[in-house]
Write a protein that binds this DNA or RNA. Structure first.
Length: 173
DNA sequence: GCCAGGATCGTCT
DNA sequence: GACGATCCTGGCG
């Protein structure tokens, strides 16, 4: 998904960092099975899973596996494309690299809230294919901010982007 | 630049 | 009643 574009209203950005979650490993919310909270994760793919983190932030995921499997890709960082001034207003910041360089930051910048949980990704939130011929250089590393299944290298970053979150993964070269 | 601490609430024990 | 798939600020060097 790195290289694809996320759009909401007048704002959009190119995905430069993601993490994968699957019900087979305990860091995934779906690991506990089907509950009211994880209902969307176990539903059909192509749906937004938006949840509240640390009581404050909204985090955006794309449900990826077929119905019955609880799996999603967390969108962790974007390179701003459209609506940059609106993003600056929402974030109260000027610097482009800081507008969407984290999972809670990008939902604030794009105006994505919990009300969009369960909506299709060709609806109010859209995820669009990467530009033709685009082949971002990506590196894999361990996921951020979790305490279980720490060893899985399921975080993926665009090495050439300065809009990824901390800590930066080293370039493969 | 690095680190510690606080904000704040849905979900499950 | 505890715990996060986080972010920001302020202190210190």
């Amino acid at each position: 998904m790195v290289g694809c574009v996320v759009r909401h209203g007048e704002t959009s950005g190119r995905i430069v960092e993601t993490e994968a979650y699957h019900d087979s490993e305990p860091a995934c919310h779906a690991f506990v099975g089907l509950t009211p909270r994880t209902r969307v994760l176990f539903g059909p793919p192509g749906i937004a899973y938006v949840y509240r983190s640390y009581g404050i932030h909204a985090l955006l995921n794309a449900v990826t596996e077929r119905e019955g499997t609880g799996a999603a890709v967390l969108i962790r960082a974007l390179e701003p494309i459209d609506g940059i001034d609106l993003m600056r207003e929402r974030r109260g910041l000027d610097h482009i690299e800081d507008l969407c360089s984290g999972p809670g930051k990008l939902t604030q910048a794009l105006g994505i809230g919990l009300d969009l949980n369960g909506t299709p990704l060709d609806g109010p939130i859209e995820i669009l294919p990467a530009a033709p011929g685009e082949r971002p250089r990506t590196v894999a590393g361990t996921r951020i901010g979790i305490t279980k299944a720490v060893e899985l290298e399921w975080r993926f970053c665009d090495v050439d982007s300065r809009c990824v979150s901390q800590p930066r993964l080293a370039s493969p070269v």
